[in-house]
């Protein structure tokens, strides 16, 4: 095996829209985050903004199949698409099985699409750390749309909301009663709700969802619609795309898109900062110090736990350097 990951060579090819280069740059940003700065510095001045769609929902509701159906139509209208599909990493073995791609074979060979599977690698919220970085790479590559499929998430992991401009939440018949839906807290995250597998029913869920959405207070001026689809035959997918476009237009007209974009970066900045601070703290506070605290907690000082941590932290001092 001879593997070539020379950044300069890859960037040159990337700029000529070479997918092999794109694939390898993704590998770099995913596996060696320290290369990211260097890579991204090559794209300064690139103006392209992609529109980001997030697809989320419980395991097996048909997210991947729907991404396939959506992409088919977007490709037909001449758009280019970058897809990021995230699947869970096993917490026990660290391995992962990435099965989303199997559902996208209809479109995978189209020249205007690029599909990448990712393992969540311990990252929470249904996505993975590299999702943001890959979305930037896709923007630099000039994709019109970016579609992010999250891990099949359970109840409350909807971090996709911070990255996507339009979040589509998928449900299926048999998903549960309305109480279940409310508990899941999904009423707040979806910009569009899809009841997929309409061939198996689901009218009842639509009714419940509509009722709940009517009751929910709307701040953004957008009342989330509910669409029924069969992602295998493609029924209802056109109307889903219409709704996505409506939402996009709504965001653009109301200036909310700017907010969303800002939020997307702010979210990453916060994450980067806290990870940096974490690293600083690790270097300042030794494992011994932490061990001492846990040992004394065990020796009858459990009620002093806060005290001791505050005390330790009060010895740490951050200072902002004055910039010129």
């Amino acid at each position: 095996m001879k593997r070539n990951y020379d950044i300069d060579v890859l960037i040159e090819k990337f700029k000529k829209k070479d997918k092999i280069a794109l694939a390898r740059l993704i590998t770099l940003v995913e596996n060696n985050p320290e290369t990211t700065t260097n890579i991204f510095n090559n794209f300064n001045g690139s103006e392209k903004d992609s529109y980001i769609i997030g697809i989320t929902g419980s395991p097996g509701v048909g997210k991947s199949t729907l991404v396939n159906a959506l992409s088919k139509i977007l490709l037909e209208s001449g758009k280019s698409i970058g897809i990021i599909s995230v699947d869970p990493t096993s917490p026990f073995t660290g391995g992962a099985f990435l099965g989303d791609r199997v559902r996208m074979t209809d479109v995978s060979l189209h020249p205007n699409i690029f599909i990448r599977s990712l393992a969540s690698r311990g990252y929470k919220g249904g996505i993975s750390r590299a999702v943001f970085d890959i979305s930037l790479l896709y923007e630099a590559f000039g994709m019109d749309f970016i579609i992010i499929e999250t891990v099949g998430v359970g109840q409350s992991e909807f971090d996709i909301y911070n990255l996507a401009y339009t979040t589509v939440v998928i449900m299926v018949p048999g998903y549960g009663d309305s109480i279940q839906i409310q508990k899941a807290g999904i009423i707040e995250v979806g910009d569009i709700y899809v009841v997929n597998k309409k061939d198996l029913g689901g009218e009842d869920i639509v009714v419940q969802m509509e009722m709940m959405l009517d009751d929910a207070t709307i701040q953004s001026g957008w009342r989330a619609p509910v669409v029924m689809t069969n992602s295998i035959t493609g029924e209802g997918v056109n109307s889903l795309i219409e709704k996505i476009m409506d939402h996009k237009e709504h965001l653009e007209l109301s200036e909310l898109l700017k907010e969303k974009k800002k939020h997307r970066f702010a979210y990453k900045i916060e994450e980067l900062l806290s990870s940096k601070i974490g690293k600083v703290l690790e270097s300042l506070i030794s494992k011994d110090d932490l061990n001492k605290i846990s040992n004394s907690v065990l020796q009858g000082k459990k009620f002093k736990i806060y005290d001791m941590v505050h005390h330790l932290f009060s010895n740490v001092k951050f200072e902002m350097k004055k910039s010129d």
């Binding site: 391995g95 099985f97 099965g99 791609r101 199997v102 995978s108």
Partner: peptide, 24 residues
Amino acid sequence: AGMEVIFGGFQNVEQIVESAISED
């Protein structure tokens, strides 16, 4: 064994190669 496995299902030759390249 801790590896990330991309399952291709029943794919044709072009798809296999395309997947391998895109997924690197």
